[in-house]
Design a protein around this nucleic acid. Structure first.
Lengths: 234, 234
DNA sequence: ACAAAAGTGTTCTCGTTACACCCATGT
DNA sequence: ACATGGGTGTAACGAGAACACTTTTGT
């Protein structure tokens, strides 16, 4: 025997939870579903896995299709396979989460999907089990960002410490001491201070920083413990 | 339209990485594959997902089929979907890892699969991408156990601190100070000391401890940081 | 001159580490 | 009596937390 008979085949899809940060709030990108079932309802961006495609490839393709962006932080979250999660046909969906620079995205536009950004606490009703997926993604983001320097992925190339701090504060609904924050972040050695300042958000101006990409690759696994008492998070 | 036409269906499977600890070494359970392709080669225990089965259910079923055990610690690891990973037919496999008390398992026996335990550094060549899965599982176990109290799952109901310490030392290839270890573990409040001692491994005897199940559920997310400098692990 | 945000240093506390001796028991 | 492994306390250190004032500059 060199085939698997009698095993039932099913559909496999990928869904993407796309996070963005507008400077004030953490958001996710949703689309209005363009086909039945549930046409016109809010949904994560997703698609079926093609015949000769790896899962990561499929997620990358789908992300690009919606945002036009490549080279994005993308990580597999979890596979969801409840029978009946898609009412039409048995489908397993592998969820991915992505972190993008929302302003980069805005430059790309171009969309048949009518995507919109939603604040995390204002997510509308979503199709299927997408609400579950979003919850899982939020939790994973909080978990992971407490220990790894990934939140840079949500910011532009150049960013200021106050911007970064606001991002952390938003994600953990916490307020942080800026002295301790700056010391901790800079002590990683991952940031390089630029000469220019951001003069938009304050009179005095805040220094821009860039990621030291080389060190970033190497130190990615360094735990950060940015959030005081992050061990008390759930 | 209320069907998905033109989408290619595929097979979906579950594979389990089953960890056990014999008191000295961390091991995983492998079987000799009983059907083509690759009949007779070493493999993870797995199986196809049935028509009306959730992923977690499938993993539980497969774990029970091999070990006879229920109520086991089981967690989804990652979905693997390289086209061609299974040479016969396109198959996506969702890998799960399980932690079992190896002695419980030995009581169950009964097996058509000729399973054997292998030390982690003596894993034979495995079929398909199973070696990859095992690597991912090892990494995840080390990652997770550094912060969450899950290693109890590898031990019997009653266990001693020296046993637990040996387990940590094995997993992290580290040697730990027993005074600091005991203080740290006991400070979680998760362990209840029993009156009896284990007199098998020493003349004096070591106190048995049991998990405080109630607190365990609640404090599961408490980070432990058992391993000094665990943040330097990759 | 003043309002608004950026930047910076020090002290205290508490958890982590390093370290050495006595205890209980079977032979 | 002694060998073997189990159990415990303390001092030094370092990372994290708390905390307030000065600087810059546009209006």
């Amino acid at each position: 025997m060199t085939t698997y008979n009698n095993q039932s085949k099913l559909l496999a899809a990928v869904d993407c939870i796309i996070f963005g940060f507008d400077g004030l709030h953490l958001k996710i990108l949703l689309i209005k579903r363009g086909f039945e079932p549930a046409l016109g309802q809010w949904s994560l961006m997703g698609g079926f896995i093609k015949k000769n495609e790896d899962l990561d490839e499929a997620a990358t393709r789908i992300l690009k299709k919606l945002t036009g962006l490549e080279g994005i932080y993308l990580e597999q979250l979890h596979a969801f396979g409840q029978p009946g999660r898609d009412p039409i046909d048995r489908t397993i969906s592998v969820a991915y989460f992505a972190l993008i620079d929302i302003h980069q995205y805005e430059k790309q536009l171009s969309n048949d999907y009518h995507p919109e950004w939603f604040n995390l606490n204002e997510i509308p009703k979503l199709i299927f089990d997408h609400t579950l997926m979003v919850e899982a993604a939020k939790e994973k983001l909080r978990y992971k960002a407490a220990m790894h320097p990934i939140l840079f992925e949500l910011l532009p190339n150049k960013f200021t410490l106050p911007q970064l701090q606001t991002l952390y504060e938003e994600i953990y609904s916490a307020s942080l001491d800026k002295r301790n924050f700056s010391r901790k972040i800079l002590s990683t050695g991952l940031l390089i201070r630029q000469k220019e300042k951001d003069k938009i958000n304050s009179r005095r101006g805040a220094y821009y920083y860039k990621l030291d990409k080389g060190k970033y690759e190497k130190k990615f696994q360094s735990f950060l413990n940015i959030i005081p008492n992050s061990h008390k998070l759930r």
